[in-house]
């Protein structure tokens, strides 16, 4: 059974329509990547799924639950957690408190605990009492991932993990994915970095101007097709 199915989703900010009939399926245990240029609607899609921007049409279902217009806190409790773009850690909270607040309202199957997060990112154990914003960008990203995992979500959304980070740091962050996948969590990554997306994802969706323009397994998609779907230029 499909874990998360997004059907004909539309979203708008006032008069501006940001999503036009988006369809996405996520199977249990799967990792998918959504790629696209700035302004393609990727972040809006993440906000629509997590209930921060209520969709104006279509539907979002997690297994047999309709979450289309559920408020953000309900969606977290249903099992969808997000690592938001720009990390958005709580500056008044320490590293450990940032992690703890992630699991405050939902513990799920209880696989991810403070200890497991420390195992995944040992540096966070060392810096547990530092204010979250005193950490480096990469370490902050680790806190943001750990914070989302603490709710043991069925689906983990990662919005632009690599934004503003050095390549070596990005590699370190993505090195955590195998263990996350092992825990049974399905993942949706939003990336501008096509190479990184192709490496981690089982399937890719390409977005442009609020629409899905291409989807498929990384191996089945040619560079040209992805390039066209990404930039919208035709190689006729």
């Amino acid at each position: 059974m499909t874990l998360l199915s997004i059907t004909d989703l539309t979203a708008r900010y006032g008069d501006f329509q940001a999503l036009f009939g988006v369809d996405i399926q996520l199977e249990p245990g799967e990792t998918i990547a959504i790629i696209g240029a700035n302004g393609a609607g990727k972040t809006t899609l993440m906000r629509a799924i997590t209930g921060i921007v209520p969709p104006s049409g279509g539907s979002i279902r997690l297994q047999d639950r309709d979450l289309t217009r559920a408020p953000a806190p309900e969606i977290l409790k249903a099992g969808i957690a997000m690592v938001p773009e720009g990390r958005r850690l709580f500056p008044s909270l320490t590293v450990e408190e940032n992690l703890l607040i992630g699991g405050q309202k939902r513990q799920g199957n209880g696989f991810w605990t403070l200890a497991r997060i420390h195992e995944l990112f040992p540096i966070l154990a060392e810096r547990r009492h530092s204010p979250a914003t005193a950490l480096s960008g990469g370490q902050q990203q680790m806190v943001a991932i750990g914070r989302a995992l603490m709710s043991n979500p069925e689906v983990l959304l990662c919005d632009e993990l690599s934004l503003g980070l050095a390549p070596v740091v990005i590699k370190e962050i993505y090195a955590s994915f195998p263990m996350i996948r092992q825990s049974g969590t399905a993942i949706i990554v939003v990336e501008q970095d096509i190479g990184q997306a192709m490496k981690v994802a089982d399937r890719l969706y390409c977005m442009m101007e609020g629409r899905i323009t291409l989807s498929g397994r990384p191996g089945d998609l040619s560079r040209e097709a992805i390039h066209d779907a990404y930039f919208g230029v035709s190689h006729a």
């Binding site: 997590t50 921060i52 953000a72 709580f90 500056p91 008044s92 909270l93 405050q104 309202k105 939902r106």
Partner: peptide
Amino acid sequence: TALGRAFRATSDDMVTVQLMGIQ
């Protein structure tokens, strides 16, 4: 306390705190 964490986090960022399941 967890309540105090929620107080501080909500004061920091009213939107992100909703992603933690907090109203």
